[in-house]
Simulated scan of single mutants.
Amino acid sequence: MRICDLKQKEVINICDCRRLGFVGDVDFDMETGCLLAIIVPGPGCFCGFLVREKEYIIPFCDIRQVGPDIILVNVDLEKATEKCGI
């Protein structure tokens, strides 16, 4: 599977059945080539000129299943790593 294939998949949290969005980027270890996390951009903000306010960094261990169209994750969003962007 290629990274561009992952970017076409929607991420859904099985804890609350919430749609988190589509994969925006991936984090991997340069030395081993192992996938460490997927990064899902947060919702856009109209007042912020459509700038993403946060993104969800979902560790590989929280990915439960990768299907043809969706990726199921098990993440507690209150404890999930959120990165603020300007």
Rank of each mutant, 00 (worst) to 15 (best):
C4E: 14
T81R: 08
F28W: 15
R2E: 07
L77S: 08
I86H: 13
L6M: 14
C15L: 15
D25E: 11
E31G: 06
F28I: 09
I57C: 10
C34F: 05
V73H: 00
G48H: 13
V23S: 05
Y56Q: 09
I58Q: 01
L36V: 11
I71C: 00
V73N: 04
K79L: 14
K79D: 11
A37Q: 06
R64Q: 08
A37N: 13
R52A: 02
A37D: 09
P43H: 06
R19A: 13
L50S: 09
L20Y: 03
M30A: 12
P41T: 08
I63R: 05
D69L: 15
V11F: 04
I3Q: 15
L50Q: 06
C45H: 05
L20F: 04
N13E: 03
N74T: 05
I71W: 00
C61N: 08
P59H: 12
R52V: 07
G44E: 11
G85H: 15
I58W: 00
A80P: 01
I86P: 11
K54T: 15
G24F: 01
E55I: 09
G85R: 14
V66S: 04
P43T: 12
G42L: 09
Y56G: 02
R64H: 05
P59I: 05
K9C: 04
V11L: 06
G21F: 06
V73F: 00
V51F: 10
I39L: 07
G85W: 12
I63C: 02
D62R: 13
I12F: 04
V51G: 10
C4W: 12
Q65R: 14
T32N: 05
I57P: 01
C17A: 12
V51A: 14
F49D: 14
E53F: 01
E10L: 07
T81E: 10
I38Q: 05
P68L: 12
D29V: 02
A80T: 11
R52E: 09
A37E: 09
I58Y: 04
M1R: 08
P68E: 13
I14V: 15
A80C: 15
E31P: 00
D25W: 05
I71M: 03
I3S: 13
I71Y: 01
C45E: 10
I12H: 02
P68H: 03
M30Q: 07
D29K: 06
L20T: 01
L36A: 03
C45V: 10
K9T: 04
T81Q: 10
M1T: 10
G24D: 03
F28G: 12
C84A: 07
L72P: 00
F28L: 15
K83Q: 11
P41S: 08
I57H: 03
F60G: 03
C4M: 06
I57M: 10
A80V: 13
R19F: 06
K83S: 08
G44K: 13
C45W: 01
D16M: 05
D62K: 08
C84G: 03
E31T: 13
